[in-house]
Computed example of a mutant assay.
Amino acid sequence: MAEITAALVKELREKSGVGMMDCKKALQENDGNLEAAMDWLRAKGLSKAAKKADRVAAEGLVAIASREDGAGERAAVIEFNAETDFVARNDLFQSAARRFAAAAIEVDSVDALNAADVGGKTVQDEVTNLIATIGENMQVRRMDAIAVSQGAVASYIHNATAPDLGRIGVLVGLESAADRAALKELGRKIAMHIAATAPLSLDTSDLDPAAIERERAVLMEKAREEGRPDNMIEKIVSGQIAKFQKEVVLLKQPFVMNPDETIEQLVENTGKTLGSPIKVTRFVRLALGEGVEKKADDFAAEVASMTGG
């Protein structure tokens, strides 16, 4: 039997767009013959996946998974895209999203996740198989994870399709020696707040300076157009920037369930009630399709193909 080299597997993958494991199997089944392996993949329906790779995938699911880690906890959120909302309701797609989210707990990037093992295959190979089975382009587009050494990582899914699956996923890390169940309850409330308000940063100190400068430039120009005196503009804008920061920084935002207290005050007061200080270490918010733009001509082309136009 011919030796199946890594270079040969790579070449077949580049030609077919099929995952590494399936390419290796195709070559093994065909004694290393590249053309025969291509035909084998076509017969299995796998090479069709490559033809779908240029379609825009902006639907799908956001999935969350977590596990306790001693006194702490780890959790991950992923965005698993497909072309249509219909596929997001498919059991195979939902099952894959859950498994991919669980695998994301152990990695730190999308590339690492795509290479991660899930039941003897990589995530990327599983995605390729789903493309061939379901018939739509798919990709694991984004992921993030939070870990705390002591405390809890709370989560919330907005517009849930099924448990831990939906259109917006939020994670909140809470470091504390307080009761974990109580921390989870607090964290879920904060996560719901984050889903609704989409803050730009956790604290004022980690707000992107570029975001502040963009806002400052807009406010300065607006003040000039309103005819404000030059010697007053800087003072006016500084006050407006302070207000802007309160609007976009999580800890400074009024809590949506009780606008009389900020998130910072909510956390501090809850810590006093539970008898242990609480620190919000980080948050993650992933919204399905965020930043993905479907080309206008994609829809026109789809309509034309269906109508024969």
Rank of each mutant, 00 (worst) to 15 (best):
K279W: 09
L61D: 11
G187Y: 13
L41K: 00
T84D: 00
V249C: 12
P209Y: 11
M257R: 04
E59Q: 12
N30L: 04
A7D: 15
D85H: 08
G60L: 12
I64H: 06
N269P: 09
A182Y: 06
V256G: 07
E185T: 06
E126S: 15
K121R: 15
V140T: 10
A132G: 14
R74N: 14
K121F: 04
E261K: 14
A210C: 11
T5L: 00
K121D: 08
T281I: 10
R228Q: 12
T307Y: 13
P229H: 03
A162F: 11
M306C: 13
K44W: 05
A211C: 12
V110R: 05
D230W: 02
G169H: 02
A57V: 14
D39H: 03
V87S: 13
A116P: 03
Q245M: 04
S238Q: 15
D297V: 14
G271I: 00
G45K: 11
T281P: 05
K24H: 04
E126F: 13
A76Y: 13
E29Y: 00
V140K: 08
A102N: 07
A210R: 09
S201K: 10
E14W: 00
L12E: 02
F299R: 13
T197G: 10
L171P: 11
K25R: 03
S109G: 11
A296K: 15
V280F: 01
R99V: 11
N129Q: 13
V148E: 06
R180H: 09
K48F: 00
E302L: 02
A58P: 04
K252C: 15
R188S: 05
S47A: 07
A301R: 14
A7S: 05
R285V: 02
N231S: 07
E106I: 03
V172H: 12
P259K: 14
K252W: 11
A49N: 03
G271R: 02
N137A: 10
A57G: 03
D260I: 14
D39W: 00
S238V: 14
A82Q: 08
M21Q: 05
S176C: 10
V123Y: 04
N30F: 00
L200R: 05
A116C: 00
Q124R: 07
A160V: 09
V87Y: 11
A217R: 01
E14N: 09
E106M: 11
F80N: 15
E215A: 03
